[in-house]
Write a protein that binds this DNA or RNA. Structure first.
Length: 568
RNA sequence: GUCCCCGUAGUUCAACGGAUAGAACGAGGGUUUCCUAAACCUUAAAUGUGGGUUCGAUUCCCGCCGGGGACACCA
């Protein structure tokens, strides 16, 4: 189904051609209803290019514009804007069609791509903590949106399951492991033995040497060490799965760093053979002398001691994703500190001749109330489990206050959806690059741009149907009489314009803001227009608007990975 | 030193070159015989700074100030 934006833009293009003018400008929703529903700046752009009067050009375009029943005759306003006011009947007609469209008016992508999206990436033998929220939640939302738009999405969890830290973990395992503690809380015990070994190594050369030896043995395939490593991986994966279950996150594949291990020598060989890499100070490096910003920043793909590092792994990962997974696009979601690294990796890929679309999608940090990186009182990272448990507990206690009558069986599910939804939404409703301050009170607030506010708007729509005890009436006619009715309808039609925009610059917050505004608009309608007490045909029309608002809210939130409940 | 990101009401966040910079919390004033007041209406309050490009700049470019981050063998 075409969006209004698309239809107007197409008509505008026709008008420009008819007026003998080149294509220019764009059609956007207006900020102020005084200016109609949509506007275009085409005349302003052309005026600049051609050094002509913008209002005269606007008149020329308007004269050539055939509204064709879509909108009222366009108006020229201000400096030379052309404003379009859709015919209310057309809005009603399109809104009605949304009822039978399971895409809710969202057009599929014109050129579907196979996209490998890499997000989350926790490390084995370390707890998932608050720092993993953004990459995980952001990546998941982008994957959901891309998939809904018709892309072929492969969600890959690039787990940190290989590296020098395993020397210490294995030494710790052999010398310090408490089996009972491991059974109780595996990750905590792995962290303990790692930390204690690390501390000992800082002051004791012998510990350092032993750890190195354990690492060498692991890399050489020593059965005992490989066995220990394998157990660490298994225990960690179990922990990750538990967190993903609570968060509602799903991965298609989980290719850890170890997966690429045996490909690393050939990667370096290839880079050396093709001349992209050279030996410098004993290490194998790729230089980017022709790129000023990178000229003095080589990418090391083999260390002086012959070992490989994460750059090597990431080059191998690019190979795998393109050659084996047949990716047209590779999206990697991580914090901003890794920008240089991926700039180098993607540059290497381009030099190797890969034509795929490479995108490094970065994000800011989550801060504590003190505006520093969020930590516990003792200065540790806040474990994800602890944080998610607290979210649900807090949601539960708010629920007890606000709606004590809710059936006990429902309370737990509702508290989960509110608590987890609040944490996710707090993240997704903000521009991804900004650092944001984590605040329980704000994210769980019932007013404002929060998950509970949106979830409650959904609940209100559902309660109308529950109260009336009826389904959506079969009569299919929509009369948009009150301004509030028209506003809701138009907002519903714009879902199809909002969802694709999320991928322009990887901004789920555009969708979040849209949903917030839709909920506002709906609440305005809800106050102004009684539904169940209204006479026909208004009653049916309003029921339809409620039903569609419910669907768009539910679907929109689902694209953000947030669940709704029927009551709260 | 070089490079990247950020700087918007008292506070926390929006605004993909467009018209009068939007919200929320906090502060002030209102709304409930009515579908969930977990809501709605309403008042006051902001673009760090100096230039530039533009019909138009929070947005793009240059300088400065402030905060964060990255820059050769950790990931």
């Amino acid at each position: 189904m075409e969006t209004f934006q698309f239809l107007l833009a197409r008509e505008l293009a026709r008008a420009l051609a008819a007026a003998d003018l080149p294509l220019a400008g764009e059609v956007t929703p207006t900020a102020d209803p005084r200016f109609g529903d949509y506007q275009t700046n085409a005349a302003l752009i052309l005026a600049k290019q051609r050094k002509e009067n913008p209002r005269t050009l606007a008149e020329r375009i308007v004269a050539a514009f055939d509204p064709d029943g879509l909108c009222e005759p366009p108006q020229v306003a201000g400096a030379g804007f052309i404003n379009f006011k859709l015919r209310t009947q057309i809005v009603a007609h399109k809104t009605l069609r949304l009822l039978d469209d399971d895409r809710l008016g969202v057009p599929p992508a014109v050129t579907p791509k196979r996209i490998v999206i890499d997000f989350g990436s926790p490390n084995v033998a370390k707890p998932m903590h608050v720092g993993h929220i953004r990459s995980t939640v952001l990546g998941d939302a982008l994957a959901r949106v891309a998939q809904f738009l018709g892309h072929d999405v492969v969600r890959d969890n690039h787990i940190g399951d290989w590296g020098t830290q395993f020397g210490m973990v294995i030494r710790g395992w052999k010398k310090l492991l408490n089996r009972e503690a491991l059974a109780q809380d595996p990750i905590a015990e792995l962290v303990r033995i790692y930390k204690e070994t690390n501390q000992a190594a800082a002051v004791d050369e012998k510990v350092r040497e032993e750890s190195r030896q354990e690492l060498v043995k692991l890399q050489a395939g020593d059965p005992e060490n490989v066995g220990i490593w394998q157990q660490c991986v298994t225990l960690s994966l179990r922990e990750f799965e538990a967190a993903y279950k609570i968060l509602g996150i799903h991965y298609d594949i989980q290719r850890g760093e170890s997966f690429y291990n045996d490909r690393l020598p050939s990667v370096v060989e290839r880079l050396l053979h093709s001349g992209l890499a050279e030996i410098s100070e004993g290490a194998v490096c790729v230089f980017f002398r022709d790129i000023p910003d990178l000229a003095d920043k080589p990418c090391i793909v083999r260390k002086r001691d012959g070992g490989y590092n994460y750059a090597t792994t990431d080059v191998a990962t690019v190979d795998y994703r393109i050659k084996d997974l047949k990716a047209d696009a590779v999206w990697i979601v991580t914090g901003a500190p890794q920008q240089l690294h991926f700039q180098q990796i993607f540059e290497i890929a381009r030099r190797e001749g890969y034509a795929a679309e490479f995108r490094h999608i970065t994000h800011g940090s989550i801060l504590g109330e003190d505006r520093k990186l969020m930590k516990t009182r003792s200065g540790e990272n806040v474990p994800l489990r602890v944080l998610l448990d607290e979210a649900v507990t807090r949601a539960r206690s708010i629920l007890e206050q606000k709606n004590p009558e809710l059936a006990e069986a429902e309370k737990e599910a509702v508290a989960r959806s509110i608590g987890i939804g609040a944490v996710k939404y707090a993240d997704l409703s903000q521009y991804r690059m900004t650092d944001y301050v984590f605040s329980w009170d704000r994210m769980l607030a019932l007013q404002g741009n929060t998950a509970p506010y949106l979830q409650n708007a959904y609940v209100r729509t559902r309660s109308i149907f529950r109260k009336s005890g009826e389904e959506l009436p079969p009569a299919r006619a929509l009369a948009l009489i009150e301004p509030a009715e028209r506003q809701v309808a138009l907002a519903l039609c714009q879902f199809g314009e909002t969802v694709p925009a999320v991928l322009n610059d990887f901004r789920p917050n555009l969708l979040a803001n849209y949903l917030f505004e839709l909920a506002n608009t709906f609440h305005g309608f809800y106050e102004a227009c009684p539904v169940l007490k209204a006479d026909e045909p208004a009653r049916t029309s309003r029921l339809i608007l409620c039903e569609l608002t419910a669907r768009v809210l539910r679907h929109g939130l689902e694209l953000l990975g947030i669940a709704v409940t029927e009551r709260m």
